[in-house]
Amino acid sequence: MPDDLTQDVIAIIAREQRIPVESIRPDATFEELKIDSLDGVNIVFALEERFNLSIPDDVAREMKSIQQVVDAIRHQLDKAHGADADAPESAATGSSAALPEKS
């Protein structure tokens, strides 16, 4: 059973992508979910709204899987609460990054 934060993230991504929650596994990559760069910025916006956070561009750029999103959010939440957490793992496996490549 995924933890609460993971479930939250999956629910937000499902809503924004208009796909069923059940279709998103916690270990899914954005590439598998057909999330492109524009979807990515939309998801980052929704996450910022939900968690009342500001996610920096360089962090957003490294979000390419559900796990990376969860790690990044956890890190940002910890940082917001003054904790000295490590940077999220950012093994860049997928080709879809959560920022558009051109404006």
Binding site: L38, V41, N42, V44, F45, E48, S54
Partner: peptide, 9 residues
Amino acid sequence: SRLHPFSIP
């Protein structure tokens, strides 16, 4: 604090 990212399109 932020605008929707689809504002431009």
